[in-house]
């Protein structure tokens, strides 16, 4: 009598969120550091893309499904493409500048490390012991419906929502105005 195949596979359910968390956190952190340190600006942009995907995965792990997809659409599909276009359009300059001289990189890394230590100290000191573990929280419900309701509810976020739409329009017009070709200029 052979044991069934299913009984041979260990039950991963309790450790699955942790496993997913560490993979996504590792992806985000490694690619963020790569974005900071890559000598070429295009490589930094690709590091940024991987970091965006990692953070989107962390959002999904936190139950924020709508935000996770929005992150991919807006950041990867919008902002990152914009940045790559920026690299493309400014590429011909002597400006294939990557990092600065080593002195400045050293200073920046020192400042960043000091800041990180301070932040970690603050996180360590803060009393998070009463905060529950992720596995103890109730099952996440989909947030899309609730977010839509909240954004269009006059008693909640309707005013900021409308203001943001006007703001985005202003930004769009402003950006188009800034990069228009002047007739009288050479």
């Amino acid at each position: 009598m052979t044991p069934s195949l299913a009984s041979l596979i260990p039950d991963l359910t309790p450790v699955l969120p942790g496993l997913v968390f560490w993979v996504l956190a590792g992806l985000s952190v490694v690619s963020a550091v790569a974005a900071a340190m890559a000598p070429k600006i295009v490589h930094a942009a690709f590091g940024l893309m991987a970091a965006f995907f990692g953070v989107a995965g962390l959002y999904a792990l936190l139950g924020a499904d709508f935000l996770s997809l929005t992150q991919v659409v807006v950041y990867v599909g919008g902002i990152l493409v914009l940045l790559v276009f920026g690299v493309l359009l400014t590429g011909r300059a002597k400006a294939q500048l990557g990092l600065e001289k080593p002195v400045r990189v050293g200073g920046a890394v020192a400042a960043g490390t000091a800041l990180l230590l301070g932040l970690l100290l603050a996180i360590g000191k803060s009393d998070l012991s009463r905060s529950p573990w992720l596995s103890d929280l109730p099952e996440p419900q989909g947030t899309t419906h609730a977010i839509g309701r909240a954004l269009l509810d006059p008693e909640q976020y309707l005013l900021p929502f409308e203001l943001v739409s006007v703001f985005l329009l202003a930004a769009l017009v402003g950006a188009a105005y800034l990069v228009r070709r002047r007739r009288d200029a050479s």
Partner: peptide, 27 residues
């Protein structure tokens, strides 16, 4: 693996933040 809490996410956030600051300063 079993105990993932608020502090873990805050730590990842802190690391990303500092990587961003280093990028702004060094480039």
């Amino acid at each position: 693996l079993e105990h993932i809490g608020l502090m873990h996410f805050l730590t990842v956030g802190a690391v990303l933040f500092c990587a961003g600051i280093v990028t702004v300063l060094a480039r």
